[in-house]
Structure formats: C-alpha cells, structure tokens
Amino acid sequence: MKRLITLTINGKEYEVAVPPNLTLLDLLRYELGLTGTKKGCDVGDCGACTVIMDGKPVNSCLVLAVQADGRDILTIEGVETEEGLHPIQQAFVEKGAVQCGFCTPGMILSAKSLLERNPRPTEEEIRTALSGNLCRCTGYQKIVEAVKDASEKLS
C-alpha cells in the first residue's frame, strides 16, 4: 500500500505517494527526476548517492523514502544558487577535481557538510570526511586540494 509522505527537497516541499519498498534514492531519481544523485553500488559502499538529510550526509540508497517523511533533504541540485556555483563546486572545476563526474555530487555534499561543521579542516580531516565517497578517476588528490581551496575562500 502506498503512503503519502511530505518532505522538503532543496527548499521545496513535495507531497508524494510512495510504496514502502522505494528507497529515497529511487524516489529522487526515478519519481522526481532529480538525477544529480547517482546510483553506483546501491548498497552503501560508494557514496555516489549521498544526500544531506536533516543536516547529515547519508547514503540515500539505504534510506526508505517513507523514512524521509517530514525530513529536509539537500541534493546536488540544491547547491548552486542564483549567484552561481557554490564555492566548493567552483573549486572542483578550477582544481580539476571532476573527471567523469560520477562521484562529484556525493563528494561535494560530503565536503559541504564537513566545511559547515569545521570551516578550516586539516588534510587528514578532509580525507576522513570524504572516506565514504569513492572516486575511480581522480586519485583523490585534486579533490582534496579543491576542498582545501574552497575552505580558504569560504572562511
């Protein structure tokens, strides 16, 4: 039986009827067309599906859509503003931290959550904060540099 849930995604309120066995990831991608959130492994290993739920980054492939009822979700689509790319996004572009781009939404959301809690992280802290997000292309170095760069510009 479908359930009616209400949740806020990127500042906008949605009311949707969802079956219990739909994940938040599949709701975002296939029901709402928010395909910035990627599906890699679907079992919590890769972090491509990272979204920020009530202020905390989580694997949306492991959260049921019904569990997100009443919650506040930020996906990569909500990071850019009218003024342009978010400084973290800008830094990723400038530092060459994006190659195929599959890991990028998750990386940026994990980085954003880190910089909100800890505006001037050490390299070790950056690497730990991104350790649930796998990248098959960049070798991580440029991603770490981009986050460092963004932290300097933001603080």
Binding site: G44, G47, T50, K56, P57, V58, N59, L62, V63, S110, T128, A129, S131, G132, N133
Partner: peptide, 9 residues
Amino acid sequence: LGSPLIRNL
C-alpha cells in the same frame, strides 16, 4: 565504523 555516511545511519 564504515564511513562517515554509514555512521550517520
């Protein structure tokens, strides 16, 4: 345990 994302769940 796991990763920062897993630890939040």
